[in-house]
Design a protein around this nucleic acid. Structure first.
Lengths: 196, 196
DNA sequence: TTGATTTCTTAACATAGATCAATGCGTGAA
DNA sequence: TTCACGCATTGATCTATGTTAAGAAATCAA
């Protein structure tokens, strides 16, 4: 099996070339974290000190509102980043939690090491600035879809964006992501089947 | 009346000291734009080439969905920034439009001048990175409130955050911001009055 | 000042999705 | 193989908000 860290090199090298020195630096500053199904990477209300690259597994980020209701904000698959960027960089309390939905392997960095990483490999600073901008624009898009489309369209969007999602996570997590109850998702799927 | 540019100096100087040279640079790179009520600063689908600091007036940003429905995303008051950050920095099409709700004065910069600004006053680069992070975190919060609170709470949140909003913009714009119809907002307000 | 236009309110009815309750199904532990 | 438990489905009913339509109030132009 390919080393986890190799996957991260590969990811960076799609955009910027890395010297052997760079790779050594990256390897020293990131560390592996293995989560069992159900483990929490960080918790809403605490400071998020982990920015993680998903090597294998599936995670969900979720928000618990004032009434104790959980709302799934997003899923994360291999090759994606997880974290609460605002909390990580500004050292404010995280607005959501992240949980492993199955056994998961991550490459994790903390804010102090992130600073060092930027000092040692300045090209990565620009790289991550663009990641933040992309993150911002995908949050914008998610917001626009949420306020303008009904549950059916949002469901079709999701399985189009992550076709494997129905195999990866239980129905009620998907319902929560869509902002509806499992009962409603069940009905919605039946309606779609009847339509075809 | 105080010069518009002085207000921007004042705004920056709450966080970083500016030399006379810095001020001259800023003055050269920003320009004044005056919008009449109803004028558009930039349009969804086009590139957003304006990052603007509001000197006076009120604006709204809004999204038009596939069915032609408008959705007010936010309002902007004096001392706030308007723009589509993702579009401005990544030169992608803007996801929303910005319109003046009354006669408005802005200090505007374009992406090329923004680059020059960062080169000449590096302290501003960090300053604006933090602005982007704050923007991200307020979008996050807005999203969380939207998915977890009902229209009544969202309305109370809004008038708490911008007490003057009811005097500044028509009811139906507020309804759109809340994600409901003007008729529903009207009912909601009556219910709140009866409650008291 | 008047008329025209825009905005706001009210009411009757429709609908998406929530809530509540019951049943069915699948998988892992014994 | 069976049991138990978590998850999914279904049906009946409820609720917030949408829809449509009408009129009242406010604003603006002439």
């Amino acid at each position: 099996m390919m080393e986890a860290i190799e996957k991260l090199f590969e990811y960076f090298e799609k955009d910027i070339p890395l010297s052997e020195f760079d790779k050594k630096t990256i390897q020293e500053l990131y560390h592996i974290e293995e989560l069992d199904k159900g483990d929490i990477l960080f918790r809403q209300g605490e400071m998020c000190r982990s920015e993680a690259f998903v090597i294998s597994g599936t995670l969900r980020s979720y928000y618990v509102d004032g009434k104790g209701q959980e709302h799934v904000l997003n899923f994360a698959l291999p090759g994606w980043w997880v974290g609460d960027l605002a909390s990580f960089y500004q050292k404010t309390p995280a607005l959501h939690s992240v949980e492993a939905l199955e056994d998961t392997v991550l490459l994790v960095i903390n804010p102090e090491n992130k600073e060092i990483l930027f000092k040692k490999i300045p090209a990565l600073e620009r790289f991550f600035r663009i990641i933040i901008q992309k993150h911002l624009s995908s949050l914008q898009k998610r917001f626009l879809v949420t306020i303008s489309e009904n549950a059916e369209i949002r469901y079709l969007n999701l399985i189009n964006r992550i076709p494997a999602i129905e195999q990866l996570v239980p129905q009620y997590q998907i319902a929560s992501y869509l902002g509806i109850l499992p009962e409603s998702l069940s009905r919605l799927k039946r309606k779609l089947l009847e339509k075809k």
